[in-house]
C-alpha cells in the first residue's frame, strides 16, 4: 500500500524546492474545466499536461492551472498557454495534442499553429 511513510519521504524531499518553484515559474498552462470543457474531454487533457510537465522535469518553470468557462464552448477543450508576454489559445485539445504542445511549444518554443484558435476559425 502507498503508505503515509512514503508520503512523508516525498515531503522531506520536496520541502526545499517548493518555495522556489512558485516564484520562478515563467510559463502558465491554463485548462478550461467548466461543464463545457469537462463534457468535451478536458479531464484527460489536464492530466496529460500535469504528467507531461512533470515527466519533462519542467515543474520549476511551468505551472498548470484550471479555469472556468471562457465563453467559446464550441472550441472546448480550450487551453491557454502564457509564455512571457505571449498568449496562445489552443482549441479542441486532446491528451495526444497536449503531449505535442509540450514537446514543440513548451520545450521547443514553436507554437503548434494547427491547433490554435486562429487556425480553427479560418
Amino acid at each position: 500500500m502507498k503508505s503515509l511513510e512514503e508520503l512523508k519521504a516525498i515531503k522531506a524531499k520536496m520541502q526545499d524546492k517548493v518555495n522556489l518553484r512558485t516564484s520562478s515559474a515563467q510559463t502558465r498552462i491554463v485548462v478550461g474545466m467548466a461543464t463545457c470543457g469537462i463534457a468535451a474531454g478536458a479531464r484527460p487533457v489536464l492530466g496529460a499536461f500535469v504528467e507531461g510537465i512533470n515527466e519533462a522535469g519542467l515543474g520549476d518553470e511551468v505551472i498548470v492551472t484550471q479555469t472556468g468557462c471562457i465563453g467559446i464552448c464550441q472550441y472546448e477543450p480550450v487551453v491557454e498557454v502564457y509564455k512571457g508576454d505571449e498568449k496562445v489559445t489552443y482549441v479542441k485539445m486532446s491528451a495526444d495534442r497536449a503531449k505535442e504542445v509540450i514537446e514543440k511549444h513548451i520545450k521547443g518554443g514553436q507554437v503548434v499553429a494547427e491547433y490554435t484558435i486562429g487556425e480553427a476559425t479560418k
Binding site: 515531503k11 524531499k13 517548493v18 500535469v50 512533470n54
Partner: peptide
Amino acid sequence: EILEDVPLNEPEILAWIGDN
C-alpha cells in the same frame, strides 16, 4: 497534517494520491 506547507497539487503528491 503530514505535508504541512507542501502543496497538495505538487505532481509527486498527486501521483501518490492516485496510487494510493
